[in-house]
């Protein structure tokens, strides 16, 4: 079969929503883009554990303690599913980890912000997980089989994350003056970074068209961002709090909320390593990896000793 025919065959499958599986022919560019997208998604889950794990030992009730550990653990699991899906395309976990640690691979820049109060746990659950869910649900129908299946699993588990976050904020919003201040402060700090999670404007996103044709992206950045803002602008009314955007106003004509300008310079800075916690996040991951090397080596050495013994016994 010629390369052009194979490519047509491939695109036909994608157009018909027939899943592409690991052993199927695929354009090299599709494979490369997927590996990058899935591994960066995985890295985001893993790095994303850190800002929330920061508050596990200080969670203010046993119930909150337990549910926060469970949430962060879920994120580890999601990273696992995504690394596993990426590995089906010919990259290894170690290669991907190296790229993260060396700065070659990116992860969602939202996790480069610090978690300064307990209310941040609420804001992250409500806004950051909310934005992530908005991105993830459409990916359950992504064209690449292992990716879609990983996303289905992830979406099933996400349901409690966002509710947990909102509930944290709700309780704070009904609490003492100090708690209400904590709540508003967290929202003030996490709102714009969450809005930026959807990526650059469509006209500044050259890859969007190709990704949509390949069905590894189902909606554009601006479409998802608008949907997110519309939903949050309503939800915040239940908290009796405000979003830090004085240009946020319902536009009857458009049927959507108008909103203020995004500071793309901040976005670019944080993406390029100049955010509040970029260095600390990577250092934490590198440290865990380096300090864990002796553990991984020992486990492997022990396994090999045992398999040698078993072979000798069998012989």
């Amino acid at each position: 079969m010629t390369s052009a025919a194979a490519e047509r065959n491939f695109q036909d499958k994608v157009d018909q929503d027939i899943r592409i599986e690991p052993k199927d022919w695929m354009p090299e560019a599709y494979r490369k883009t997927l590996v990058r997208q899935m591994s960066q998604h995985a890295h985001s889950e893993i790095v994303g554990m850190l800002p929330e794990a920061n508050w596990i030992t200080r969670a203010p009730s046993l119930r909150r303690k337990a549910t926060l550990i469970a949430k962060v653990q879920d994120e580890a699991g999601h990273g696992l599913y995504l690394y596993a899906a990426a590995e089906t395309l010919g990259t290894s976990r170690d290669e991907m980890i190296d790229q993260l640690h060396s700065g070659k691979a990116k992860y969602s820049s939202i996790f480069n912000y610090p978690t300064l109060t307990w209310a941040d746990m609420g804001a992250i659950g409500w806004l950051v997980d909310g934005a992530a869910i908005m991105n993830q649900v459409p990916l359950c129908r992504a064209s690449y089989g292992p990716y879609a299946r990983a996303m289905v699993r992830i979406c099933k588990e996400e349901s409690f994350h966002q509710r947990q976050g909102f509930e944290i904020l709700l309780v704070l919003s009904r609490g003492s003056a100090g708690q209400r201040r904590m709540c508003q402060d967290a929202i003030d700090r996490w709102w714009w970074p969450s809005v930026m999670m959807f990526g650059p404007n469509d006209d500044a996103s050259p890859n969007t068209a190709q990704s949509m044709q390949w069905k590894i992206k189902r909606f554009t950045n601006d479409e998802l961002r608008q949907r997110f803002i519309d939903i949050c602008a309503e939800q915040i009314k239940l908290l009796g709090m405000t979003l830090p955007d004085d240009r946020l106003v319902w536009n009857e004509e458009r049927g959507h909320y108008d909103f203020g300008p995004i500071d793309w310079e901040e976005f670019r800075n944080v993406l390029n390593g100049h955010g509040p916690c970029n260095k600390e996040r990577i250092e934490a991951r590198v440290q865990a990896h380096v300090e864990g090397a002796w553990v991984r080596e020992a486990a492997l050495a022990h396994a090999r000793k045992n398999s040698v013994l078993k072979t000798e016994e069998a012989a």
Binding site: K23, T88, G90
Partner: peptide, 13 residues
């Protein structure tokens, strides 16, 4: 398939 897989493993790459 475009390539004739040289192996019968689950991951082709």
């Amino acid at each position: 398939s475009f390539y004739d897989p040289a192996n019968d493993k689950i991951y082709r790459h």
